[in-house]
């Protein structure tokens, strides 16, 4: 068994493929048939307004939420029927799920490494390096529950990176993160993609997506409305204008809220 990049992937093809993912909560359809190919080596941004189904789609893609219909493949391995192989190649940062936050950062990394079945010396070396690079080594014995939002995102990212996955699925990695931590996360992700990794992340911050991504998909009402490379999606316009057009938002004209 190997612990990193040399894991053989079954042939070329998308790093993440979603086929007809559907999820219904009671009477509300949260995700209505999402098809998506995330090319290997791409930096993929999943845009969408609040409640569009971003978190739901990504949760189904990484095997946390059982879809009503559809399939998700990580480098050719079905997340739901072949979870061991799929999840070995996958690192995920969830926005909605808590971490085991009564551990310190170092303990959480050690725990994650043990769960991943990594050898002790590999965990020790990688955890120390990750804590150092992410600026979390100073936190010492502070429990993760007492971390700031930015530190929580960073330790979550460190846990997702620990086993050197081929695909990173990040739910709102820049949400509530201060600019300094955000820049650091960005740099690490850029380097990860440059080294051959694939990233898909959800966001509703246009600037970040526009600056980082090679590919963009816009999700609204539980469906992919637009997908393509960043240039294709923008079509020469501002990304924000495209987004508002696609999502069908309204702009305040000035007559409303006169009491403000």
């Amino acid at each position: 068994m190997t612990y990193g990049r040399t894991v053989t992937d079954s042939g070329p093809g998308p790093a993440l493929a979603l086929r007809g993912l559907t999820k219904r909560f009671e009477s509300k359809v949260a995700v209505a048939g999402v098809d998506l190919d995330v090319p290997t080596g791409s930096f993929f941004g999943l845009l969408g307004p609040n409640g569009a189904g971003k978190t739901t789609s990504l949760s189904m893609a990484v095997g946390l939420l059982r879809p009503d219909a559809g399939r998700a493949y990580v480098l050719g391995h079905d997340v739901w029927s072949d979870p061991v192989e799929a999840k070995r190649r996958l690192g995920a940062l969830t926005d909605s799920a808590r971490m085991f936050d009564r551990l310190t950062g170092s303990e959480l990394l050690a725990y994650t490494g043990l769960l991943r079945g990594l050898p002790q010396d590999v965990i020790d070396a990688r955890a120390a390096e990750l804590l150092d690079v992410l600026g979390l080594a100073d936190a010492g014995r502070t429990l993760v529950v007492d971390y700031s939002a930015g530190m929580k995102k960073k330790i979550g990212l460190a846990c997702a990176l620990l086993h050197a996955p081929r695909l990173l699925v990040l739910d709102e990695p820049f949400e509530a993160v201060d600019p300094v931590s955000g820049a650091l996360i960005r740099d690490i992700l850029i380097r990860y993609v440059r080294n051959g990794g694939t990233v898909i992340f959800s966001s509703h911050v246009m600037e970040v997506v526009e600056r980082l991504c090679t590919h963009i998909a816009i999700l609204a009402d539980g469906q992919i409305k637009v997908v393509g490379t960043t240039d294709e999606v923008k079509g020469g316009r501002e990304l924000e204008d495209v987004f508002v057009d696609v999502v069908g938002g309204r702009v305040a004209t000035g007559a409303e809220l006169s009491w403000l």
């Binding site: 490494g113 965990i123 955890a127």
Partner: peptide, 13 residues
């Protein structure tokens, strides 16, 4: 506030 982690996270955990 305590000193930074030593080099053995697994052992410390």
């Amino acid at each position: 506030k305590a000193k930074a982690v030593d080099g053995k996270p697994v052992r410390a955990f």
